[in-house]
């Protein structure tokens, strides 16, 4: 008689061997990390050396207590306001650049998906005509956002002279590229079924856009734009480094003069401003969502 309980058949654990992708990925990741380690001239001994420690100490010792003299604080009001102004107007310019380009760069509006199935399939010339503005605006957006704000700022400082205005333009162009791309992604992600229904009533593409896409996308558009405004505050502080106004210019000057007490004050001010915009934009976001 066979035993009543037989030992269980061993079921091999599936997938114990990593997939080919995983192995190739791990190998390439390791190689890239090693090559980067070498290219970036990573130097841990220096980082943990006594000298580096002493340098850090110098900064801390000089930075505290921070510069809080009334004259200095009073002097900071203008650059701080300027930073806010740059961020506000820069975001507005970015909106003006990004919104129309973002519409053009929306594939589901331009040429792809069920909205165009009957209209475009089998009509290569029509399709090409639709594709051209789409491709062009994508390329433009990608150029705008690939070049860092700081480089844009330098170029505009050359063109319009020192001061906050080149900062506005730099944020406007660079963020315009980002906003345009994200707007188009938001538009592409809306529920397509209402769009189909609108089109079936005979609505034109503009009708479909304003009645179907914008209402669905609106909260996301507002929310992302507000978020970008928060980023713009931080960015406009940086732009001062190349002479484009705001408190960044002050940070740069104080740094160059090794006046770390002032630097700490300035950074504290920046922290406060960023926290303030964070809170404000959070409240605004809650309202639209």
């Amino acid at each position: 008689m066979p035993p009543l309980t037989r030992p269980p058949v061993a079921v091999p654990f599936p997938g114990s061997r990593p997939s080919r992708f995983a192995r190739v990925f791990a190998l390439l990741f390791g190689l890239t990390a090693a090559a980067s380690w070498w290219a970036a001239r990573v130097d841990l001994p220096t980082l943990f050396s006594r000298e580096a420690f002493r340098n850090a100490l110098v900064f801390v010792a000089d930075g505290f207590p921070p510069a809080l003299s009334p004259t200095f604080l009073f002097f900071l009001i203008r650059p701080a306001l300027e930073t806010v102004q740059i961020s506000l107007l820069g975001t507005a310019v970015a909106l003006v650049i990004g919104f129309p380009l973002g519409i053009l760069a929306t594939a589901s509006l331009a040429h792809a998906g069920p909205l165009h199935e009957l209209d475009l399939s089998g009509r290569p010339v029509r399709r090409l005509l639709r594709f051209m503005p789409y491709g062009l605006s994508r390329a433009l957006l990608s150029l705008f956002r690939s070049v860092p704000e700081l480089v844009w700022a330098l170029v505009f400082v050359r063109a319009t002279g020192l001061g906050p205005f080149p900062g506005v333009l730099a944020i406007g162009v660079a963020y315009g590229g980002i906003l345009g791309k994200v707007y188009s992604e938001i538009f592409e992600a809306v529920d397509p079924r209402p769009l189909e229904a609108l089109q079936a009533t005979g609505a034109s593409r503009w009708g479909v856009f304003w009645y179907g896409m914008v209402p669905q996308a609106f909260p996301h558009l507002v929310s992302y734009t507000l978020y970008r405004w928060e980023c713009a505050i931080r960015a406009s502080a940086i732009l001062g480094f190349v002479g484009a106004g705001g408190i960044g210019q002050q940070i740069e000057i104080s740094m160059r003069m090794f006046n770390f007490g002032e630097v700490v004050t300035l950074i504290g001010l920046l922290v406060l401003m960023v926290a303030g915009t964070d809170a404000l934009s959070l409240r605004l976001r809650r309202r639209v969502l």
């Binding site: 529920d191 009533t201 005979g202 009708g207 009645y211 209402p215």
Partner: peptide, 25 residues
């Protein structure tokens, strides 16, 4: 297939989009 965030009236009036100009819409 309604537009969720739009007030009812606009969803109903959307039936007119094929007749209206973009400006009117």
């Amino acid at each position: 297939n309604l537009v969720p965030r739009l007030p009812v009236i606009h969803n109903v009036l959307a039936g007119r989009l094929g007749t209206w100009s973009t400006t009117r819409a």
